[in-house]
Computed example of a mutant assay.
Amino acid sequence: MLKPTGTRRKRVLAALVAAVFLTLSAGGCASFDVTSPHDAREEASADAKGGTGPVDCAKAKCVALTFDAGPSENTPRLLDILKKEKAHATFFMLGENHVVKRPADVRRIAAEGHELANHTWSHEILTDLEPDQIRKELVRTQDAIAKITGKKPTLMRPPQGKTDRTVSDVSRDLGLSQVLWSVTAKDYETNDSALIQKRVLEQTERDGIILLHDIYKGTVPAVPGILKELKKRGYTIVTVSQLMAPAKLQPGMVYRP
């Protein structure tokens, strides 16, 4: 066994602290694996063969943009904005009343180079469910997205960010990595687009993951201003997988800045 260096000890300690924090916030007593975008990239860089894609976030000042709970009637306008700004995002989509009712939006999200991800079928809190119920919540959405696009997502976001060992085990079985966030505008509380923009910009740092919802009226109008200011500050807007590259996200792992 290699003796950990000082830098490695710091990374291990940080990961352990994050794991404890996440476990407590989820209200459970079991531990599970967690890492950050920076550490995922660093651990993978020595063995990487496929490169980093269009941007190397180890060098560039990157931030991942994500949207939960859609698609909705607001999504086409959001896609127009992202296309105009040449920005890509990750969409954590709900199956019931969203994916199944708006297949054209799902196809467009995929066709325009965005990342499709799973946000469960009906937004049940997964830590409150039995393993077979957790599996059903995830599988139904996996299947619905695959039916429309031909591909199953490899990422999921647990509702309210609540996860535990059981959720992680089921996610691992289904080939799904868990993605949390570091920036939230709490756009479920307000339709004030200026306030949403302000909250995002105040919290955003390098390697961050921004959480927004394309189901609320005030969110999409805030996106142009958010993108403009982030670019002005030198950020490159990427998907979650691009943020982690060259790391290959591991099923069951929790990724959190």
Rank of each mutant, 00 (worst) to 15 (best):
R9C: 11
K10N: 11
V17T: 14
V20Q: 12
T23N: 12
A26E: 12
C29F: 15
S31R: 11
D33M: 12
H38I: 13
E42I: 11
S45R: 15
A48T: 08
G50K: 15
G51S: 03
G51C: 04
P54D: 10
D56N: 12
A58V: 03
A58P: 02
K59D: 12
L65F: 01
T66I: 06
D68Y: 03
A69M: 13
A69P: 09
G70M: 03
P71M: 05
S72A: 02
E73C: 07
N74C: 07
P76D: 00
P76F: 00
I81A: 00
I81P: 00
L82I: 09
L82T: 09
L82D: 08
K83D: 15
K84M: 10
E85L: 09
H88F: 14
A89L: 06
T90S: 06
T90Y: 03
F92D: 05
H98I: 08
P103L: 10
D105E: 12
V106L: 08
R107V: 04
I109G: 01
G113Y: 00
E115P: 04
T120Y: 02
I125K: 13
T127S: 08
D128K: 15
P131M: 06
R140S: 12
R140E: 13
T141C: 04
D143L: 01
D143N: 01
I145H: 05
A146T: 10
K147G: 11
I148G: 00
G150Q: 06
K151G: 11
K151V: 14
T154W: 09
L155S: 00
T163I: 14
T163F: 13
R165T: 13
V167C: 14
D169I: 14
S171N: 13
R172E: 15
R172S: 14
G175Q: 03
G175A: 02
S177G: 13
Q178Y: 09
L180S: 12
A185L: 07
D187I: 04
E189T: 10
A194E: 13
A194V: 11
A194P: 05
I196P: 10
R199M: 06
R199G: 06
R199I: 08
T204F: 08
R206V: 10
D207F: 03
D207M: 05
G208C: 09
I209L: 01
I209Q: 01
I210W: 00
H213C: 05
H213P: 02
H213I: 03
Y216A: 10
K217H: 15
G218N: 01
G218V: 02
P221K: 06
A222I: 02
V223E: 09
G225F: 04
L227S: 07
L227H: 08
K228M: 07
E229P: 07
K231Y: 10
K231L: 11
K231G: 09
K232V: 12
K232W: 10
G234F: 09
T236Q: 15
V238I: 03
A245C: 01
K248M: 06
L249Y: 02
Q250C: 08
Q250Y: 08
P251W: 06
G252W: 03
R256H: 13
P257H: 13
